[in-house]
């Protein structure tokens, strides 16, 4: 973020404190104007990051290249194999690079500002810490959404050019992917609020992703615990039970893969999709509250 940007952000935020009208709506609008300005500047700053651009270009290349992988298959066999290959590779690419982008950006926005001392300039303006955090978090979400839209858009075009039918199910898949990223992003963001550099939150973000994917293992731990009858053994079982219920389970979002190859014997997905969206939002709120709890007492 350039010095001028910081001054502008602070100035806009200051302007945001001035009441513009009456009523609840205008109060909320006034309150959100500051975070909105910070979000916009976070987004501008984010899209300039070279590492992020590197991930994005790499993912776009893989998505584009997936169409050529079908050259390895036998052209005489009349099948939908090529289409399946493109779908699976693209969804996986979006998931892997999307997660990397999400973790990288969520882990770096706050620590980088601490390192650059920019945070002092912004917080010296009449901006509350919660507004600052909200702005940063929204900015991160904009970056994730834009990246996801770019990757999803290319995937959409690749699929459309193959089958000449609008792949509408892909939109649902991308939407679910975003809500999965929202959870990872919120908790990585919370860790980043406690850190002074982006290394620890990045590792933490990867850890969240891996544990979130393997939460079902805790059921196994729970079932196997207590066999010796010792208190410590049983306690592990209770702990596994508690963690399994409290930790977000990212495997629920595997529907994003399943939905693309929708088989006629699949149960209706319209039940699961709204529940998954709500699940993502609830854990995002938890992550944000956790971030604020850490950040509000942080000495700057």
């Amino acid at each position: 973020m350039s010095t001028q940007d910081v001054v502008n952000a602070g100035g806009d935020a200051l302007a945001a404190r001035k009441p513009t009208g009456n009523g609840v709506f205008s109060t909320v609008a006034d309150y959100l104007r500051g975070p909105w300005c910070i979000a916009i500047y976070t987004w501008r700053e984010g899209i300039r990051k070279k590492t992020l651009m590197g991930f994005l270009i790499l993912s776009l290349l893989v998505i584009f290249g997936s169409t050529f992988l079908s050259a390895f298959l036998d052209p005489s066999a009349e099948s939908d194999m090529e289409l399946k290959l493109i779908k699976d590779i693209c969804v996986t690419t979006i998931s892997i690079f999307g997660v990397l982008i999400t973790i990288f950006i969520s882990a770096s926005v706050v620590p980088n500002e601490s390192e650059n001392k920019v945070i002092y300039t912004v917080l010296s303006k009449p901006v509350r810490r919660v507004q600052y955090l909200l702005g940063k978090f929204l900015g991160v979400q904009f970056i994730i959404i834009v990246n996801l839209a770019l990757m999803g858009g290319l995937f959409f075009i690749a699929l459309y050019l193959r089958q000449w039918v609008l792949p509408t199910l892909l939109l649902w898949s991308i939407l679910l992917t975003y809500f999965e990223f929202l959870i990872i992003s919120a908790f990585t963001f919370a860790i980043s609020c406690a850190a002074t550099s982006s290394v620890l939150p990045t590792i933490g973000g990867l850890f969240i992703y891996i544990t979130g994917t393997l939460t079902e293992y805790l059921k196994d731990v729970e079932v196997r615990s207590g066999q010796s009858g010792e208190f410590f053994d049983e306690m592990i079982g209770w702990l596994a039970y508690g963690l399994r219920n409290v930790l977000p389970n990212l495997q629920h979002f595997s529907l994003k893969m399943q939905i693309l190859d929708r088989a006629p014997n699949d149960p209706p997905t319209d039940v699961l999709i709204p529940h998954l969206m709500a699940y993502g939002l609830i854990y995002a709120v938890s992550g944000f509250i956790m971030a604020y709890l850490i950040f509000r007492r942080k000495e700057l």
Partner: peptide, 22 residues
Amino acid sequence: LFAALVASLAVGSVQGCHLRHL
């Protein structure tokens, strides 16, 4: 804030149980 965090995690847990049931 702590109460809000616990409440949101509890709601998340309930939602998780519902998803697990599905």
